[in-house]
């Protein structure tokens, strides 16, 4: 095993960043895939693994990927919600893997909302 130099410590910090971020629960962006029974049967699991693969492949370290229950619009599943820091959340509907990759590249990474797949902005609060 290689012996470390002082600057190698920061390399390890960088490499571990996504893990650290996950544990602190704070990122630049949060992507929620809706995983109710409806979402799962419509293919939400595939959307989830596609997004996870994108994060891993591109070594993205500041995006949190999480799940939540049914968003109430079962006919338009799979759905996902993208929340950039200090911005209103955007819901996307009728997803497939290709759309998910586009949304990830354009909205999550570049900050451009993909209006053609978006349902609307804001979120219905459930107390």
């Amino acid at each position: 095993m290689a012996k470390l130099k002082p600057e190698d410590l920061n390399k390890i910090v960088e490499r571990m960043r996504h893990q650290t971020l996950l544990r602190d629960g704070a990122g630049r962006a949060k992507v929620t895939v809706h995983m109710g029974t409806c979402g799962i049967s419509a293919g939400a699991r595939k959307i989830m693994s596609t997004l996870l693969a994108s994060i891993e492949k591109q070594q993205i370290s500041d995006v949190i990927l999480t799940t939540s229950g049914c968003a109430g619009l079962c006919s338009q599943e799979p759905m996902m919600t993208v929340e950039l820091k200090d911005q209103a959340p955007v819901k996307y509907v009728d997803l497939d893997e290709k759309k998910a990759r586009t949304i990830f590249a354009d909205h999550v990474l570049e900050g451009k909302i993909v209006t053609e797949f978006a349902l609307g902005m804001g979120s219905e609060r459930v107390s």
Binding site: M1, A2, L4, D8, K11, I12, R15, M16, H18, Q19, L22, R23, M48, L52, I55, E56, I64, L65, T66, T67
Partner: peptide
């Protein structure tokens, strides 16, 4: 040291 303990990305821990 780039290869030491390569990390994998997860969505939850």
């Amino acid at each position: 040291t780039s290869q030491i303990g390569k990390t994998k990305t997860y969505r939850a821990q």
